[in-house]
């Protein structure tokens, strides 16, 4: 057994230990479990939803669902797969809430403003002259991503920005690998069309 395999195996046992303790109501163990994955959860949420506030809502909803469902978690799948499945479900359902909200307030807030606030939160600073050009690109790309269907968008975010393998995405979303590929191809096609005039010429 190589050193890497040994440390993975120890890590797996440590995680198993945390899950068992958290299942019995140990909050410290639950927090440690959260801290193992929460950056990835927040990152997926931030890529998927419109604003940093929405991303935090998704983050909180995901871990509250995990907290409630953990006593029933049967370890049939990896904890991470289960967690990211919950994350994708929350993102997909959150979108519809945002949509309702967006329809109600379209007059108050333009697409540009919404996209800008997200990219600003992601890069962690205010707009400067130097960032103007890249922000413009970011807005167009974000706009193109937002034009995808919810599932296409989820698959696209998980693949392009989180770097998951197609088989991992399929496990998270309960889809076949073929379906995930199809979503990716369709998403890429759509992105090409959306960005053609501005950046791909």
């Amino acid at each position: 057994m190589s050193g890497k395999e040994q440390s993975e195996s120890l890590d797996e046992m440590l995680e198993m230990d945390l899950i068992l303790k958290a299942k019995r109501g140990d909050m410290t163990a639950f927090e440690q479990l959260v801290y193992r994955y929460d950056k990835q959860v927040l990152s997926i949420a931030a890529r998927y939803v419109q604003t940093a506030e929405d991303a935090k809502d998704v983050y909180q909803e995901v871990f509250l669902r995990v907290y409630r469902a953990l006593p029933k978690f049967q370890m049939k799948s990896q904890f991470s797969t289960w967690l990211f499945r919950i994350t994708t479900n929350v993102c997909l359902s959150h979108r519809s809430k945002t949509r309702r909200h967006t329809h109600a307030s379209l007059d108050q807030e333009s697409d540009t403003e919404r996209g800008y606030s997200l990219s600003e939160k992601l890069s962690g600073g205010g707009a400067t002259e130097q960032r103007a050009e890249s922000s413009d690109l970011a807005l167009h790309v974000q706009h193109a991503i937002d034009s995808l269907s919810p599932k296409q968008k989820m698959v696209f975010v998980l693949k392009y920005y989180q770097g998951y393998k197609i088989r991992e995405i399929a496990a998270m979303l309960h889809l076949s690998e073929g379906t995930v590929k199809r979503y990716l191809f369709d998403a890429t096609k759509r992105m090409r069309t959306e960005l053609k005039d501005t950046f791909l010429t």
């Binding site: 909050m27 639950f30 927090e31 959260v34 801290y35 929460d38 950056k39 927040l42 990152s43 931030a46 940093a52 991303a55 935090k56 983050y59 909180q60 871990f63 509250l64 907290y67 990219s119 939160k121 992601l122 890069s123 962690g124 890249s134 690109l137 970011a138 790309v141 974000q142 392009y160 920005y161 890429t188 992105m191 090409r192 960005l195 950046f199 791909l200």
Partner: peptide
């Protein structure tokens, strides 16, 4: 296309956002 999308990837989530999310989660829990 991949170059354009890759350029958009920008920075990761900020530590500040992560800490805020954790703090709010602790309250919710």
């Amino acid at each position: 296309l991949h170059e354009v999308i890759g350029r958009h990837s920008g920075g990761d989530i900020t530590d500040d956002l992560l800490f805020q999310a954790r703090r709010e989660l602790r309250v919710a829990l």
